[in-house]
Deep mutational scan, measured.
Amino acid sequence: KFNKELSVAGREIVTLPNLNDPQKKAFIFSLWDDPSQSANLLAEAKKLNDAQAPK
């Protein structure tokens, strides 16, 4: 279960257009550290992506 959630969340995070590479890497490392938090980490990444969207 975690492997699928981890890969789905990881793929989504790397495609978020408004995150820079260090931010993406930080989220990916957090996913590896605790795969059970993949849904929460993906939600946080999406929030940050939205907040950094060009206005």
Rank of each mutant, 00 (worst) to 15 (best):
N49S: 05
S7F: 13
N3S: 12
K46L: 09
R11G: 06
G10H: 15
K47L: 09
F29L: 15
V14K: 06
E44F: 08
Q37V: 04
F27A: 00
I13G: 00
L31R: 00
F2T: 10
P54M: 09
K47H: 06
L16N: 02
E5C: 12
L42T: 03
N40A: 13
L41C: 06
I13K: 00
L41E: 00
S36Q: 07
P35N: 03
A43M: 10
V14D: 05
K25D: 10
N3M: 10
V14L: 15
S30K: 14
F2K: 06
A43Y: 09
L31P: 00
N49V: 00
S38E: 14
A53F: 05
N3P: 11
S38D: 05
R11P: 03
T15I: 07
S7T: 12
D50W: 05
L19F: 00
E5W: 12
N40P: 04
E44P: 00
Q37F: 04
D34T: 08
A26E: 06
E44Q: 12
G10F: 15
N18E: 02
K24A: 02
A9L: 11
A9W: 12
K47D: 06
Q52S: 05
Q23F: 02
Q37K: 08
P22Q: 15
I28C: 06
K25H: 10
A39V: 10
Q23K: 02
P35D: 02
L19A: 00
N18M: 01
S38H: 12
D34V: 03
L42P: 00
P17M: 08
N18P: 00
L42D: 00
T15R: 15
A26N: 07
Q52R: 04
S7Q: 11
I13E: 03
L41F: 05
N3F: 14
N20S: 15
P54C: 13
V8Q: 12
L48P: 00
R11L: 13
L16T: 01
I13M: 03
L48N: 03
N18V: 00
N3T: 10
A45W: 03
N3D: 13
Q23Y: 02
N40S: 11
D33R: 10
N49L: 00
K25A: 09
K46V: 07
E5S: 12
F29Y: 12
S30G: 08
W32P: 02
K55P: 14
L41Y: 04
N40V: 13
A39K: 08
Q37D: 06
P17I: 06
G10P: 00
I13S: 01
K25G: 05
D34W: 02
G10Q: 15
S38A: 15
